[in-house]
Structures are given as structure tokens and as C-alpha cells.
Design a protein around this nucleic acid. Structure first.
Lengths: 221, 221
DNA sequence: TAGAGAAGGTGTAAAATTACACCCTTACTT
DNA sequence: AAGTAAGGGTGTAATTTTACACCTTCTCTA
């Protein structure tokens, strides 16, 4: 199955220069340290948080926080689904790395959607793609066994960072939560991957040696 | 957790009378028998399928067809996420009951989105809500044990039909696929529910006796 | 009306995952 | 420098779910 993977939303490019000036002129930058909360579940959506740099994890921090929703990388609007539906965040976002967020003004954004039909059509495409990505992510993780889910996560990280060797922004416990399995399952599967020469891992440094094999495990696992 | 449950999309009500005439004038009705395929995964999205009557199941009919995506009831546009993203269906839709579908012309619909900003904003709200519903449905099923998942399904059906007693449009095997567990798990949990006086069930006739208890099992199961 | 097939149902065995217990190492704190 | 907390790691037991085997009922069809 193809993994739909937005490389960031492009709808803002549909704006005229003067509209961009208005949107960015009313925007401000926020910086978050790794581990900080970016948005809090239940809070009202006042503005749109465009993730310019870093990785965040979306979590449903309820009683049962077995599994996180998804990881978001640079280019995504955090909680874009909630902006025009519930108007409050349905989940929390946690910075996994240091993050830079551009806060776009809700009223300006909405006005531009209303006035510029090219922009609104492009935004419809964007949220449709985000929808697909969420669903795809979740289906990929929940239909798999623990090995397949871990392989999927590693493949996604490789793709997002564009390198086969990277520092994973998650502890083993975090990885378990993201893929919806136990910490022990992550450790055991990671040990298996090492034994079979599919990955090298030492602490947070992960190097994917056999991407094809990993992808197969992700697909058929 | 609140279950977001669209009672059908209302964005079409934002259209002017003449726009409605144009949209419905170019539309046609299709009728499907229970068991028939409504849309096929991989097919291009030519038009929008508005489900006027009946219940359909969305399935990712790949090799691993462990779990279906969601059930859709009257009022929903089938595959609305795909219309402006992938442009082809990412899943198949199967009629569980006899269905009536209103086929809306894609070009007319898109033109109205472009020309009527109130409609497009309302459509953005609609697809955001659909997004929420998909995610909520999936999270509810995958975070639960088999009893909780079955309880969730029964609660959703009760809510959709607006009655505590109904004919379930699914065989036990179907129910298993919808909630992502095995047929035996469904049967055993259903037997437990009967023993504990939570439901009565005889074949496809289901009567919910203790909705509160069922809801608790759904929430904490 | 006999037979096949689909559906509901249940017990037991097998498989997978989680939970627990415990180890080692590192890094931070006092 | 010792103590403690957090993270990585691994074996074994407990739990959950699935798989298998088998039975009954109902319906459709030859």
C-alpha cells in the first residue's frame, strides 16, 4: 500500500503576495523544547499552529493512553481537523524534538479561505490528504503484529528524515506508545532486527541496514 | 469521550435554491441490494455518492482484510475524503442493507464549492467532522478489548437506528470484521452479554436491555 | 424430501502479547 | 563520590485472542 505522506501543506502557496503578507504579518513564532506540550487537549482552537521545524506526537491523553495518534513532521498544521469541526483540540501535541511553530491568525486564515476560492479548494485538498494520512497511519499500525508495527514506524522515520541513519526522537517506551504495543515488545523486536542484520541500534542512534527487508516486515507483518 | 456522530452532512443546505436545482438536476439515483458493492477500491472518483438510505461498510479489501474502516449511515457522502485528495477510492464500500444513493455531479459540486464560499466553508466543516468521526471510530475500536469493541459497535448501532431493539445488518462474521476481532470472540462476548442481562439476541434481532452497562463496557473495556 | 451450504454457537488448544521481575548502564543530583 | 532515577535490555509467567474442531439450526435447491 502506498503511504500517503504529505511533505507539508502547499495550500498557502495559492495565496496572492498581498494575502501572504497579511497572513504572515499577523503571525508569530513560538519555540518549544523537546518534551514540552505544544497544544493541550480540550483547549479552544484560537489560531493555526504550523509546524515549521521539529517533530511532534499527537496523543489522546485520556485514562487509556495506550497509543498515540500519529507523529507530525515539519510542514503540517497541528490539529487542522479540529479548526473547522470541534473548534477545540481533540488531542494534545507533545514536542519530541525542539520545535518551531508559526502561529497563523484564525480570523485572517478564515477570511482568506472565504475570499480566495483557489486557496479554499487547495485547503480542502490539504485536509483531505491529512485525513488520508491519519487513517493510513492508524490502519498500518493496528492491522499489524508488533514486528510489523515497529518496522512501519522505522520506515516512516527514515522517510521523514530522508536518511537511513538517524537519532530517533523517542525512547523505547515512547516508541511503544506510538505503535500501540508494550515496551518489551519493542525491545524484543528491535533485538530480533539487530540479530537478523536489518538494523543497527545503539540507544537512540538507529541505522537501517536492510530497508527492503524492513519494508517487507512492515507490509506483511 | 464524546462520540462525534454526523447526522448527515448539512453543507448542501448552504446552497441557494438555484444552485440546489443545478446540483440535484444533474444528479441521479442508484439503488443497491444488500451485499452489493457500491464503490470499488482503486476506481476513479467521478462523482459524489450521497447515501440517502441504508447502511454501508467501508473496507480496505486488500490481502489482510482484518478490519473494516467504518460503517456509514444515511446522510454521508461515501469516500468524501478521496474526492479532493487521491481522486480514486482508497477503499471499497459494501451495501449491508438495501441502499439508495444520490449521485452528485463532481464538476457541478466543485463549481459550487468555488463559487459559493459559504458552501465551501460548510464543506470544510463537514469533511473535518467526517475526519473526526473516522478517527474516533478507529481509536474506539483499536484501544479496546474484544468486549469493549463489541459494546462500542452495539452502542453505535443503537444510536444510528435510534432504538434499543433493531435488526443488525451484519452476520456475526461481519461484526467480527467490523470490530477487528475474530468471529469466536464476538460470539463469546455476545454470550457473556446475554448471560449478564445486558442484551437479548436471537439471530439478527438485538435488544439492548442495559444501555448504561453496555456503554460502560464500551468506555472502560 | 434429501442434501448442501451458510449461519449461530461452544469447548479446548495454540499462539501472541503483556506483565512482572530483574539486570546493567548512564546521567544527574546532592 | 555516592545515591537515585531513567533508560536499555532479557527471561519467564500470565493473560488475551485466535485457531481448530465440532455441533445445531435454518434455508435454499436439486
Amino acid at each position: 500500500m502506498d503511504i500517503i505522506h504529505t511533505t507539508g501543506n502547499t495550500c498557502i502557496n495559492k495565496l496572492l503576495d498581498e494575502e501572504k503578507d497579511e497572513l504572515f504579518g499577523s503571525a508569530r513564532n513560538l519555540y518549544f523544547k523537546a518534551g514540552e506540550g505544544v497544544v493541550k487537549k480540550g483547549a479552544s482552537v484560537h489560531d493555526l499552529f504550523l509546524l515549521k521545524e521539529g517533530t511532534v506526537e499527537l496523543i489522546l491523553d485520556e485514562g487509556r493512553e495506550k497509543q498515540s495518534l500519529i507523529l507530525l513532521f515539519a510542514g503540517e498544521i497541528i490539529g487542522v481537523n479540529c479548526v473547522y469541526s470541534t473548534k477545540y483540540y481533540r488531542f494534545s501535541a507533545l514536542a519530541l524534538t525542539d520545535c518551531e511553530v508559526l502561529v497563523l491568525n484564525y480570523r485572517v486564515f478564515s477570511k482568506l479561505l472565504t475570499n480566495n476560492s483557489g486557496f479554499s479548494m487547495s485547503f480542502i485538498q490539504y485536509i483531505s490528504m491529512v485525513n488520508e494520512r491519519f487513517l493510513n497511519w492508524h490502519m498500518n499500525l493496528t492491522e499489524k503484529n508488533s514486528a510489523g508495527a515497529l518496522a512501519f514506524l522505522l520506515c516512516e522515520l527514515e522517510k521523514s528524515y530522508g536518511r537511513s541513519s538517524f537519532e530517533i526522537p523517542l525512547t523505547r517506551k515512547d516508541m511503544a506508545r506510538v505503535i500501540g504495543f508494550s515496551r518489551e515488545s519493542v525491545l524484543k523486536n528491535l533485538a530480533d532486527f539487530r540479530k537478523e542484520g536489518i538494523v543497527e541500534s545503539e540507544g537512540r542512534t538507529i541505522k537501517i541496514l536492510d530497508a527492503d527487508r524492513l519494508h517487507d516486515i512492515s507490509t506483511y507483518g
